[in-house]
Design a protein around this nucleic acid. Sequence first.
DNA 1: TGAAATGTTGGGGCG
DNA 2: ACGCCCCAACATTTC
Length: 475
Amino acid sequence: MNQSKIVIVWFRRDLRLSDHLALEAASQQPAEILPVFCLDPALLESERTQSPRLAFMLQGLASLDHSLRQRGSRLVILRGKPKKVLAELIERVGASALFFNADYTPYARHRDETIVKALPIPVHRFDDALLHAPGEVLKANGEPYVVFTPFKRQWLTLTRRIIAEDYLEKARFYAVPEDIGQPIPTLAELNFRSASIEFPPVGEQAAQQRLQDFMQQNIYLYGESRNRLVAEPWRDTRSASSYLSPYFRFGMISPRQVYWAARDAYTRATQKSAKASVEAFVNELIWREFYMHIMYFYPHVTTRSFRTEYDDIEWADDPNGLQAWKDGITGYPIIDAAMRQLKAIGWMPNRARMIVASFLTKDLLIDWREGEKHFMQCLIDGDPAANNGGWQWAAGTGTDAQPYFRIFNPVSQSKKFDPEGEYIRFWVPELADLPLKFIHEPWKAPTLPKDYPPPIVDHQKARQRTLEAYKAIKS
DNA sequence: TGAAATGTTGGGGCG
DNA sequence: ACGCCCCAACATTTC
C-alpha cells in the first residue's frame, strides 16, 4: 500500500489535459493523480473497430503519454475488461477515488453503470463531452427534442464556459512505478493489419494548432466553402472544412473550447457573411450534440430506424453493388472519388458523405446499416451517434430526416460541388485527362476511359424503384 | 442540407 | 401591326 493518497483519472474519449473536467476535479483532491487508459477487448473485437481509427487512437495515447511524462508521470495502459483491470489497479496502488468523463453511447453507459456499482471506492463522473449533456436540453414538457431547429434554439439559451487553465499547474501527478501497466501496443500486437493511412498530425497540440489556424481566417468562409469537396483536407490552405472531427472523436480538444473560439471569431467579424459563416460552423457543433442526445434517449436507433415504420422497407440484396460502392468502382465519378478518399485517408468532407449515403440508400437501395458499418470501419472520426444520425438522415428513416423522396442526383451534385472536377481528378486518376465536359458523366464521352467502369445503375430508373419501395411503406 | 414534373410568363420569329 | 407558336426562363407543385 502506498503512503501517498492516489486518485485515478480514467481517460477514454478525452485524450487531452486542458479543459478536462474529470482531471480538473481530481486535481482539487489532496492526492496524486494516476492517469489510466483501458484497452477493452470488447471494443477491439468489434467489427466496427478497424485499424485506421485504432491507429489514430494509439498515436493519441502516445501523445498523451508524452505530455504526462513532461509532468513527471505517464499514461498507464491496462488491457482487459475495465471493471476487472481497474479493480486490480485500485487494489494495487490503494487508490481512493476514480474520476472520469461520461460517454453517452449505449455500450459505454452500460459498462460505466456496472463499474460504478462494482468498485469499492467513490466514482466521480462528469459531463464533459458536450457543452450541454443529455437531459439539459428538454422541451417545456420535459421531453427530449426530436427536431433539430427547436433543439438548437433551446441549446443556444444555455451557457457553459471553459474551465480555468490553472488546475494543471496545481495538479500533482503520480510518478508511476515501471511495473504498473503495459506499453502502448502496436496494431500488429492487437492482431490488426497496419493501416496504410495518411494521418493528420495527432494529439492535443496538433488539435490546438488546427483550431487556431481555422479560427484565423477560414471560419469566415465556412458558409460557402464547407460544401466544397476538398481532396487533401489538412494540406489545403483554402481549408473548406475545419477538419477538427478526428480530434473531437478522441477528445483531443474540448468542445467548449471550440465553441468559445467560434464565439470570439463571431465578435471579431464585421461583415454579415463572415458572421453567417461562424453561425454555420456553430450549427455543426450543435448537430453533434443533437445526435448524441438522440442516441441517448432513443437507443433503438443503433439497430433500427428512428421511425420504426421504415424498418419494413424492402432493401435490395446486392452484395456486388455494396462492394462496388465500397471500392469506388460504381462508374459515377463523384461517388468513386469520395469512396476512394475514404479508404485512403479515413475521412471525407461532409458533403461527400451525404452524396455517397444518398447513392447507397437511394440509388442502390441498400440498407443504411451497411453504409453506417462501413463508415465506422473506415472513418478516423467515426462516432456512433453522429454517424448513425447522418445515415438515418440520408436514408430518410431518422429524426429530423429529409423526406424519403429527396434523392440526390449524383451528376448534378458533382457539377455543383466539384465544378472544376478537381476532386474527381485527384481521387480517380483514370479520369484525370478527361475534358471537363465529361468529367461528371464519363459515359457520355466518345470513348469511356480505359479501366473505368460504366455506371452500375441508371439513376433515373433507380430513383423510380426507390420511390416505389418507400411509397409501399407509407400506405 | 433536392430534383423532376408541371405550370406560367413573355420575348421574338414568322406568316 | 397582329395573332400564333415556340421555347427559354422562372415559379410552383409533386415525389
